[in-house]
């Protein structure tokens, strides 16, 4: 097999700390494809480094996320940061393949030595973020990237889950002709720390800003008292010409500061880890119990019995759960 990560290449934590791109790239491939093998490395990396600041960027397809990310990152790099970008696109349910096209919009930064871009597919983790993404964050953080951006398409639960990972979440919207705001439809209104109204060169932009403001106000009235709360701002941008990007970067920095000042309150790191731990557990349970179960004769037999109406799915589940309990001991 030519597959490089399947060579007996062993990656050490020292190599990752040294930050060589090829090593990082292969470590991520290992994370995606050989999860078992990579846990010892991740253990070491996690305990010996700090997680980077994570910016989540989500919104409907075509709203300009990738273009924005490129500009945000350019700004950060100019300030002397090393920055990584993880661009996530959906895996096709039918073929298991994926088309990863976000790099198209990141031409400007794609050869900058301080920027690492990686495209990843969701690989069927519907209803939850692929745990490989957090693990990738661990590797990139250890490799010296102090700021990491994660771009996901905001259409389903998967994408809203980005919030469970990111320190700051940007929700990108665009002025639209109709009254229905896609972000709202997708349930993204509660998810954002900052709203970006991109494509502000569009004639409908002011109308859209009003609509957004209204929606945000409605969302904001509930909850905590005003003082200790982050007022969700709306930043207007034209990503293609970089208009508004400076202000956006300033607002992101303010949110980061707000988080630091507030300490653990809002985005408790405990929550991120708790989410990841659950994801890891789900993944392990699936691999260790559910996947083998699907292949087992006992499972086939149960299915037959259900078909013959000798039992029903509910009782079958209870029976299997009892078995699990025993085995989990």
């Amino acid at each position: 097999m030519r597959k490089s990560w399947q060579n007996k290449m062993k990656i050490t934590a020292e190599q990752v700390f040294a930050g060589e791109e090829k090593v990082i790239a292969r470590a991520i491939s290992l994370i995606e494809n050989e999860r078992q093998q990579v846990f010892p490395l991740l253990k070491e990396l996690y305990s010996r480094s700090e997680l980077a600041y994570l910016l989540g960027v989500t919104g409907p397809p075509g709203s300009g996320k990738s273009t924005l990310v490129a500009k945000i990152v350019s700004g950060w790099v100019r300030e002397g940061n090393k920055v990584a970008v993880i661009a996530i696109d959906p895996t096709s349910e039918f073929s298991g393949g994926a088309l990863l096209g976000d790099r198209i919009r990141m031409d400007d930064i794609s050869t900058n030595k301080d920027v690492f871009i990686r495209s990843m597919a969701t690989r069927g983790y519907l209803g939850g973020l692929n745990p490989a993404i957090f693990d990738t964050v661990v590797v990139l953080s250890a490799a010296g990237y102090k700021k990491i951006v994660i771009e996901t398409v905001g259409v389903g639960q998967n994408e809203i889950d980005i919030v469970s990972l990111a320190d700051t979440t940007l929700v990108v919207t665009v002025p639209e002709a109709g009254d229905e705001v896609q972000a709202f439809k997708a349930g993204l209104m509660e998810a954002g720390d900052i709203f970006v109204l991109n494509k502000a060169d569009h004639p409908e932009v002011n109308k859209m800003e009003l609509v957004l403001k209204q929606m945000l106000r409605l969302g904001n009235t509930a909850g905590e008292q005003a003082e200790n709360r982050w007022e969700v701002p709306i930043v207007k941008t034209i990503a293609t010409t970089e208009k508004g990007i400076a202000e956006l970067n300033k607002t992101i920095a303010e949110h980061q500061e707000f988080l630091t000042e507030k300490g653990e309150n809002q985005k408790a790191p405990g929550k991120i880890i708790s989410n990841h731990l659950i994801h890891l557990l789900e993944e392990s349970l699936k691999r260790k119990y559910l996947d083998p179960l699907k292949e087992s004769p006992a499972f086939a037999k149960l299915l037959q019995e259900i078909a013959a109406k000798k039992t029903d799915p509910y009782s079958a589940m209870e029976e299997l759960m009892a078995n699990f309990k025993e085995r989990l001991g």
């Binding site: 895996t91 096709s92 039918f94 073929s95 298991g96 393949g97 994926a98 088309l99 990863l100 096209g101 790099r103 198209i104 031409d107 495209s119 597919a121």
Partner: peptide
């Protein structure tokens, strides 16, 4: 080609 490889189950990065 990108589309065809995707439908054959590959992960295809297209750079434009």
């Amino acid at each position: 080609i990108a589309r065809g490889l995707k439908e054959a189950g590959m992960e295809v990065v297209y750079t434009g």
